[in-house]
Design a protein around this nucleic acid. Structure first.
Lengths: 179, 179
DNA sequence: CAGGAGGTGAACACTCATGTTCACAACGGT
DNA sequence: ACCGTTGTGAACATGAGTGTTCACCTCCTG
């Protein structure tokens, strides 16, 4: 139930960062007093949401063997379902105000950057900055989650769509005109 | 100066959607009274920001000849500099509460979707949904703007980076292992 | 110089989210 | 049956953002 509370709070605050704690409590089907008992202040709640999201993403990344051939494939599989949590970390304002959160945020994707750097020259283009490739990867994952949330994309189709776009782009390889 | 006010307000409210009108006024180097005189309520200000952003994006899209070969290239060139305004439209919550804004938001990128649909089968892969290709395009533009804002990407490099990733993906075409 | 337009800070009343306390109900274990 | 735990609504004080008014200033124009 506590998990469900954090999940609901994440969704509510993402949809409207100015939502009152009363709104959050109501959405979670819980009394405002109870919410205050578990998270004394609004900052505490947001900190808890960020920490939980960081834990989940860390867990997803560390659950992937970064030395196998399909590391990126595994990563995408694991990240897509985290949808709102990733969104919270990427979009919620002023998360970097907290020292410890800031550190975790900046170091979180270092393993991913390293992985990409390692793959550049073999499976990945070496003429692009590693951080850019990581950004594009995250953007794809996030876009896929948006599509799922909007009902336009089947969850099981998401990883394939993200990966094929990520690796091959959108150009028709059989097209006669090249540029 | 009015333009600068709207631009500053956009940046401030994006960085912190809960920022007070006093903060906005101070950031814009203007008195809070003046701000209230021009935009009687907070909702009026946000509505004005959204409308201006919509105008700019509309202008960018309609300024591109969608029948030429390099329509997408032109589009990217024009959209990247709009950075924060696009971000505002994509990320600011509850914009769809306003009827007229909502309509403009949903119909804004229809020409782009149509363009993509037209190009599918010739220059663009036909095995991907048009809306997905549009999302990936926007994500690339937005990522580029983030890179520029973070100082990691030179503005003049942005369009090339977006387009090559968009069309070709990130796979090393010369790699020996295929999948 | 006179007067209007636009901008400003100060002050005010008002609303609302917030944080706190308290009394009460439901529940499980002893 | 007793008691600690957990959750709840009600009520309250507080603080901050908001919207408004007003007197004052500067600048530009007739």
């Amino acid at each position: 139930m506590s998990v469900h509370l954090l999940q609901t709070a994440t969704s509510v605050l993402l949809k409207d960062p100015t939502a009152s704690l009363g709104d959050v409590a109501k959405a979670a089907g819980v009394g405002r007093t109870t919410l205050h008992k578990r998270f004394p202040t609004r900052a505490d709640l947001i900190h808890a949401l960020a920490t939980e999201a960081l834990d989940l993403v860390d867990e997803a990344i560390s659950g992937v063997d970064l030395d196998t051939d399909d590391a990126i494939e595994q990563l995408v599989e694991k990240l897509v379902p985290l949808g709102p949590r990733v969104e919270f970390l990427l979009r919620f304002p002023n998360l970097q105000d907290d020292e410890r959160l800031s550190v975790r945020l900046t170091t979180m994707d270092q393993p991913v950057i390293d992985l990409i750097s390692r793959l550049q020259g073999t499976r990945l283009r070496a003429d692009l900055p590693a951080w850019w490739i990581a950004q594009i990867l995250y953007a794809g994952v996030y876009s896929a989650w948006e599509g799922i949330a909007a009902g336009r994309l089947a969850p099981l189709d998401a990883p394939r769509l993200v990966l094929t776009t990520f690796y091959l782009g959108v150009r028709d390889a059989g097209a006669t005109d090249r540029q």
